[in-house]
Design a protein around this nucleic acid. Structure first.
Lengths: 252, 252
DNA sequence: CGGTGTGAACGTCTTCACAGCA
DNA sequence: TGCTGTGAAGACGTTCACACCG
C-alpha cells in the first residue's frame, strides 16, 4: 500500500446492516484497496461500453483489469448488489455506480502547480474518463512561463494561487514543482482550502489531519524495479523466461 | 498496495535463521512493503549525509520519511542489525546497506519509450540518488522526434528497440507511450530480455511470469482523490479543518 | 538512560469455496 | 447451469510493548 489516508473517524456507519440498493444510502466504508481498483474497472468498462458490450462477468472484467475474479466480486459487492447471478454485470449500470462511488458525477476542479515537462504532460493528459476530474488552472513561479498557452489554458502566476483556488472551485491540487518548493506550495494549497493533494515532487509533505496526500515518485518506482532486477541476478538458478509462458496479469 | 509482483518461487530461502552481518549473505525475503519504503529512507539519508549528520534515530528518520518509528525499525531490521542501541543508525553505513539491498551498487540501464512531455520529464529527472539507475536510451515512434536532442541524448527510433536493449544493457523499460501502443512496446521489451517495466500508459499490460510491471496512472490517482473529496462533502458534519492542527505525516 | 530489535497482538487484504439465485 | 455474493480461512502488514544492550 502506497498511501495512508487520514483516519477521518469512520463515516457515519449506520449500524452494520446493508441498505436497500434502491434510492439513497450508499455503502458505508469502502476499503482503500477497493477504492484504488475502482478507477481501473472504470477504464475497462468504458472500453467495453465503447465496444457496445452490454454485460460482463467478473471473470472477464478481472482479466481486463489484471486482477482475479474473486477480487472483482468482493470489490463490486462493497458498492451494492449490481450483478445478475448466472449472467454478470450490466456495463452501463456498473459504470454509473462506480462513477458515483468515486464522486465523478459532479466535477472536481484540479489545479496543477509547476508547468515544466511533467506539468505539461499532466495538463495534456486529457483522457480523464467520464468528466468528473477537470484541470481548471495551471500555475508556475517562472515569469518566463506565465502567460504562456498550454493545452488551451494560460499559465498563471503562482502568486495568485489563493485567488485561483477560491474562484475556480479547486478541490485537488497537483504539485509538479521541484522538491524544494513542494512543502511551501502544499501549505498554501491547504491554507486556501484544498484537502486533496497529488505530489510528484520527491519530498515528504507534512500536512495537518484531514488532508489527503498521494505521492508519485519516479525514482522510488525505478529503485523498486532495481531491487527486483537484482533479485533475479543474485539467485544463481531461476530462469528469466519460464518455459511455461502462460500469460499473467500485470500490476494495474 | 498498488503493485503485485510475479510470485517468482520464493528466492532460495536458506533455512530461516539470520545470517552473520559480516560478509556475504544478505537478508532472505524482504517484504514488498519494506522494499517500497527503502527508496524513501534512502532519499532522506542522502539529505542527512549532505548536512553532515552522522547518526540518526529511528524516530528522526521516521518523521522525515513520513512513517512511524516502529515501521522504520522493522524495515531496517529486515536487512540486518545496523543500529546501535541507545544511539541510532550510522548514516553512511545505512546508506550503503540500503543501496546494496536495492541493487544500486551496480548500474541498471533504463530505456524510455515515448518521448512526449512525460518522456521528457522522465528523461530530465536527473536526481536518481546515488547512481544505480541510469537513463541510457530514449526511443520514439514519431519520425519528427527521432534525432532530436533531449537532455543530452539523441532520440532513437523505436524500430531499433531490440538493438538498443542488447547493446546498452537495458534492464528497466519505461513505457510513456499512448495507451494503444503500450502492450506492443511491452511485448517487444520483454522479448528483447527486459524483465522490469514501469508503465505510465493507462492500460493493463499482460506479461509472462517472471516479468515485473509497475504502473503509474495519473487518472487513477486523481479519481482516488475525487473519492476522498466526495467522502467529506457527503458527510454533513465533519470539519474540514480540525481544530487540533497537529502536524501529521503524508504518504511518503 | 535511550534507542534498537523483535515477539505477539491486531487489523487489513486476498483467496477459497460454496450457498443461493436468475 | 452459470455466475454472483459472501462467510471463513489464510496471508500479509502494522502497531504495540518490552527485553536487551551500548
Amino acid at each position: 500500500m502506497t498511501a495512508r489516508f487520514t483516519d477521518d473517524a469512520a463515516g457515519a456507519a449506520s449500524a452494520d446492516g446493508r441498505q436497500e440498493t434502491a434510492a439513497g444510502t450508499r455503502a458505508a466504508h469502502v476499503p482503500d484497496a477497493t477504492v484504488a481498483r475502482l478507477p481501473v474497472y472504470l477504464r475497462v468498462l468504458l472500453g467495453l461500453a465503447d465496444a457496445k458490450v452490454e454485460t460482463v462477468s467478473s471473470e472477464d472484467l478481472a482479466v481486463a483489469a489484471g486482477v482475479n475474479s474473486a477480487k472483482v466480486r468482493k470489490d463490486l459487492s462493497q458498492l451494492g448488489s449490481f450483478g445478475t447471478r448466472g449472467v454478470g454485470y450490466d456495463v452501463a449500470n456498473l459504470l454509473a455506480e462506480i462513477s458515483r462511488e468515486l464522486g465523478l458525477t459532479r466535477p472536481r476542479g484540479v489545479a496543477i502547480v509547476g508547468i515544466g515537462n511533467l506539468g505539461r504532460a499532466l495538463a495534456g493528459y486529457g483522457g480523464f474518463a467520464p468528466r468528473g476530474v477537470q484541470v481548471e488552472a495551471l500555475l508556475d513561479a517562472d515569469p518566463g512561463r506565465i502567460g504562456e498557452m498550454v493545452n488551451g489554458m494560460i499559465v498563471l502566476s503562482v502568486d495568485d494561487l489563493e485567488k485561483v483556488v477560491a474562484n475556480r472551485d479547486i478541490s485537488i491540487g497537483v504539485i509538479a514543482t521541484p522538491a524544494g518548493a513542494a512543502q511551501d506550495i502544499c501549505d498554501r494549497l491547504v491554507a486556501a482550502g484544498v484537502r486533496n493533494i497529488l505530489n510528484f515532487a520527491p519530498a515528504t509533505l507534512i500536512v495537518s489531519p484531514g488532508v489527503n496526500v498521494r505521492k508519485v515518485d519516479l525514482s522510488v518506482e525505478l529503485q523498486i524495479l532495481s531491487f527486483h532486477d537484482q533479485q533475479r541476478t543474485r539467485r544463481p538458478r531461476g530462469p528469466a523466461v519460464p518455459d511455461v509462458p502462460e500469460a499473467v496479469e500485470a500490476t494495474s
